[in-house]
Amino acid sequence: MNSDDLATADPSPNRPAGGILPWRRVALLYAVGLLVTLVPLLLLSRNFFWLNIITYTYLFAGLAVAWNIIAGFGGQFSLGHGVFFAIGAYTTARLFLDWEISPWLGLLPGAIACAVVGPLIFWPTFRLKGSFFAIATLAFNEVALVLANYLESVTGGPRGLQVPFRAAFKNMIFTDPRAYTVLMFVFMAIAVGISIVLMRSRLGYYLLAVREDEDAARAAGISVIQVKLRATALSAALTAIGGGLFAMYIRTIDPLTLFSLPDIGVKFALLSLIGGMGTITGPVLGAFLIIPLESYLRAVFGGSGPGVHLILLGFVMLLAALFMRRGVAGAIDSLRQHWRHRRSA
């Protein structure tokens, strides 16, 4: 590396200065990254308290990665992904309850439904920008909450759906909790893998172009709306699969849980923002920081009064917004940049 490289290297986050990596390097990095995320599972697999947290961490890492596809790469700050999450959860649970359809298959109809419904409901709102898009998608979440409470025959209404505990591989119900952890790990791995392939494809580049400047994107022959719709379909379908897995893990789903803003819809955004939006590692990092922190705070401060752990979480959000605007991934990058400059000086 020569000094000229250092002088022109720029501090923006998370993309190595250098050419487009060959596929083999990417595959290697992916494998190493996954191994690293396996470490907590290997260390704590006997501790059921932590195992549950790790399971949620993997699940929400995958969900944040899914959200990040349209929000981070595409710049469409959706607060309505709870809708896709819930559609996935209800579809998988309902198919299993009514027709004994194995959740392994039951994940797909929800995903397909969201790949269709997502673009359909986002299409009119794509005219809106920034905060307005966020509010409009938030409204989707609220409409869906009201409908879920109302359509008792489908969703079980406010009481929700209960999936009986009938352990079997084909039922995706396991007596060993570690099986769920592995399941969520695989989900995360697939979501990250899809993100990597996406961001090395034409659609991925077009998505970034649309985020940066729609007029410039059009001038490059890009159909802006088509790119947004495709990315929405992918993001929504992955979110639905996460919802289906969530349903099979907790086995009791009700509207207040599925459409909760702090726990679901806004959580995806929170994790990605804390980790670093618009990067592949950011949402995963965010989940690995926030989900355990939140669970730990709940366990430690839960006893000292209702809401105390959430106050702390709120402060974490506030401080992250104020002092880590590019997320952890961005902060790490700045530090590395700083260190490299000092070394070269």
Binding site: L270, F315, R325
Partner: peptide, 30 residues
Amino acid sequence: LVLQPLHAESNMQIFATFGLLIILQNAVLA
């Protein structure tokens, strides 16, 4: 304290006011 430093960062404003929401709600709850 919160919003002025974040002007022109609409995503972070959404995020910060949501953090504020959680803090206020749970502080009163506690």
